[in-house]
Nucleic acid binder design. Structure first.
Lengths: 288, 288
DNA sequence: TTGCTTCTGAAATTTTTCATACACAGAATT
DNA sequence: AATTCTGTGTATGAAAAATTTCAGAAGCAA
């Protein structure tokens, strides 16, 4: 048997030459480590939601005679992988140099996420989800220099799901106006990681004085805002970089978004439909 | 069909009841971790030097309806084994209720990250890092409705590290002004995931016409911008939520930030010091 | 707009697969 | 020695798979 290039590599290599539906197919194949490709062409077509001719065309594009020929190559590849001990797969299969920044980064991020979850109190998560699902409560979001992006991301989604969501301006000079609205029917979500910013603490303190509830996202060292916060998520942020990683934080945010959405799926569905309509209409006015 | 008993175990278990040629067949199957069983019945028969009826008989003996049924079971078994051990990113062993949204989320995110990395071309990553590290090139960032937050995050960091970084306004009506600056010395970083936005593509096209280089972050289904892009990162975004997850994308962004920073660590250090000073001074003016 | 190219899947066609019927060989039983 | 039983393979056709053809859809250029 000639040293056929691996189907995986072929797929990745030719990715650019593939058409839309061929790429859909390729995604399905790469997803399950090619195992999907061991079905009949018909079933594979259904799985990938393409037609059988598309599959044949892809096979030819990769240099095979037809689908069965491609399938043979896949089978060999799978067989070869099955012989390896499982533990080795991860490192062996991925041909990355282990010291490449991406590899080191992923290791650090995995560690961060794991340790963040270790510390996460699921009941607190649920309580916060409930708090954020209450449409009667106003939500104010606020972040620091770096974490403002995270606040923005959270804001972006929450605003679609529910009413009464506000993102504070990046300039502290206009915060006082927002502060006026923060009372006992408000929840303030603050992001504050290392190089904690005085302004944030100041605002958090004032908000609490007015009766607002604070939900804090911070790192493990502890922001000064913790003492004001009703709920607090501590995430790991260290990575091999001059910067901190907010990935673990984003994970929590995304999980919260998913949970809040599912808690109010009925009402948010209406809201989303209304929103889509508006986007449709406003598009008319856009030029470019 | 939830046939929990593994084919492999079934074979070993019933070994005594098997006839001579059935046993020959069973040996072939067990030999290659069942992968041989994924061929057509004809070829499997040849490999094991038995006749096709023998194979059907064995399948029935094991409790399957026929050969395809057995083959399905084998395929599932192989697929299960091929599933990558998710490095350290695995919430399954954790004490969390496995069906809690957080747990499900983490599992999905792990998969996304692994698969995204599987597809990542490290050389392309390096080329993009180099592109972004060139201080002579202007960088314009741009995202869609949801991905704008990611663009913002990237912008936030790049702007600190290097000069000439610009974030396009969220309103397309003012894009033309930015477009003026996009020439062959510009790199445009576009984020575009599903529910691809026409405006983004339009802008990308125009930017390319002016000679700009496009770096695209998209999902695996393929944004229409791909055809304009000089570099393209495809990330997995599916999670158990109504929303897509941009975590894998954030990972790439953070890794790029780290790499760009380290490539120009000398010059960016100066820049950061200067920035810190400015923050220190401007704080004087802040009131609250 | 109009024609041109590219992509895609429905449908028709060819090829292969899979299961069945059956024949035959050898072993065990009468 | 004749008869049954068991294990096996050959031959066969229905069913499914793989390929080809072709026409419509979608995008692009002029």
């Amino acid at each position: 048997m000639d040293r056929t290039p691996l189907v995986r590599d072929l797929l990745r290599e030719k990715q650019d030459e593939l058409t839309a539906s061929e790429r859909r197919l390729s995604a399905v194949l790469l997803n399950d480590s090619l195992v999907m490709g061991l079905q009949s062409i018909t079933r594979l077509a259904e799985s990938a939601e393409v037609s059988t001719p598309t599959i044949v065309r892809l096979a030819r594009k990769l240099g095979f005679e037809g689908f069965p020929d491609l399938q043979d190559a896949i089978r060999e590849e799978v067989a070869a992988r099955m012989k390896q001990p499982l533990a080795k797969l991860d490192a062996a299969e991925r041909a990355e140099p282990p010291d490449h920044i991406v590899s080191r980064f992923v290791r650090a991020v995995s560690e961060n996420i794991n340790r963040t979850l270790d510390r996460l109190d699921l009941e607190e998560f649920d309580r916060v989800a409930e708090l954020l699902s209450d449409p009667e409560r106003r939500l104010h979001l606020l972040g620091g220099r770096i974490t403002r992006s995270n606040a923005h991301y959270f804001f972006n989604h929450l605003q679609i799901i529910r009413p009464q969501v506000f993102l504070l301006d990046s300039s502290p000079s206009v915060w006082p106006q927002s502060l006026l609205d923060m009372d006992e029917r408000s929840t303030v979500i603050v992001f504050d990681i290392r190089r904690y910013e005085k302004e944030l603490e100041k605002l958090a303190g004032l908000a609490v004085d007015q009766g607002a509830n604070i939900v804090l996202f911070t790192d493990t060292w502890g922001s000064p805002i913790e003492k004001h916060a009703a709920h607090c998520f501590r995430v790991m942020v260290e990575v091999p970089s001059s910067w901190d990683s907010t990935l673990a934080m984003n994970l929590l945010i995304e999980a919260l978004v998913a949970e809040v959405q599912s808690r109010r799926s009925d009402s948010s569905a209406e809201r989303i439909t209304a929103l889509e309509n508006m986007i449709g209409e406003s598009r008319i006015f856009r030029s470019l």
